[in-house]
């Protein structure tokens, strides 16, 4: 029987490719808003496809630990830290495609690694398209919640401003909770200023429509789902994140509303 010493450098290189590929896949999934069980599942499937005899993986919303057992006495462990989490469904989808190909044996470790690096590097966010999308979604939600043309136009500005300031804060590494507070406050301020410009406008659909895309709807769901599945640590962390996010948004709204009442009312 061969040991890793006899196999030498070539073996080592191959194993490190496998390790790089699975870590990168799991990292992309966690950074792009995938569930933790999806990251764990992907790692296990990919390792099966690469022919790794045994793998243990623990994924958390903030990081990932995995150990590959290669042969009898040799095992490799790696820890990957996940700092920033956002939703990027396209990357998630592409990453799933790669892991499916690896699991069915169509891709080897080096090809998978190259494909995943290409997915991770892809970052052609068209800034104006994003601002436009945010503006349109805010104003359409405002109409959905009972607004009309005036509310539509005010929400257009709110949505654009929210996206603009979010990108700005993400670039300067503002903690997510603080940026929630600021976006909530900014939306409310703009909506209230809008009522000064267009008297008779209803503030409620504007503010509610603008904050709806920011509320942690899916995060709560994922948290509860994780907890029910038995992933207690990630479930608890996600629920905590969702609650804090909602509270921060609400605090931002409340802050501006009460200041506005003090000044105007």
């Amino acid at each position: 029987m061969q040991t890793h010493n006899e196999l030498g450098d070539e073996w080592m290189e191959k194993v490190s490719q496998v390790l790089d590929a699975v870590c990168l896949a799991a990292q992309i999934i966690l950074e792009c808003g995938g569930e933790t069980y999806r990251a764990e599942d992907t790692v296990e499937r990919m390792c099966k496809g690469f022919g790794v005899p045994k793998v243990d993986v623990l994924a958390l919303p903030t990081g990932l630990m995995l150990t590959l057992a290669m042969g009898e006495e040799k095992s490799l462990t790696r820890i990957v830290r996940v700092h920033r989490r956002s939703i990027h469904l396209k990357k998630l989808d592409q990453c799933n495609g790669v892991s499916r190909k690896v699991a069915s044996g169509e891709m080897n470790a080096l090809e998978a690694l190259e494909a995943l690096e290409a997915i991770k590097a892809e970052c052609k966010d068209r800034k104006w398209l994003m601002i436009g999308a945010s503006a349109l979604s805010a104003s359409a939600f405002a109409v959905m919640l009972g607004g009309f043309w005036i509310e539509f136009f005010i929400a257009l500005f709110c949505g654009a401003a929210v996206q603009f300031i979010s990108v700005l804060m993400a670039r300067h590494r503002m903690p997510g909770m603080i940026s929630g507070l600021i976006t909530g406050a900014l939306t409310t301020l703009l909506a209230l200023l809008g009522t000064l410009v267009f008297p008779g406008a209803n503030v409620e659909p504007v503010i509610s429509g603008s904050i709806m895309p920011l509320l942690p709807g899916l995060a709560t769901t994922n948290g509860i789902r994780d907890t029910i599945r038995g992933d207690l640590v990630s479930g608890g962390a996600r629920i905590m994140e969702a609650i804090l996010c909602a509270i921060m948004l609400a605090a931002g709204i409340g802050l501006v509303l009460s200041m506005w009442r003090g000044v105007i009312g």
């Binding site: 409620e204 509610s208 709806m212 509320l215 899916l218 609400a250 709204i253």
Partner: peptide, 23 residues
């Protein structure tokens, strides 16, 4: 993955009005 569809499909139901009214 089902998450792909769910993320955006659930957004209109998120109770934004409730949060605003509470505040």
């Amino acid at each position: 993955a089902a998450t792909l569809f769910m993320t955006a499909a659930i957004i209109p139901l998120v109770p934004g009005v409730g949060l605003y009214r509470t505040m």
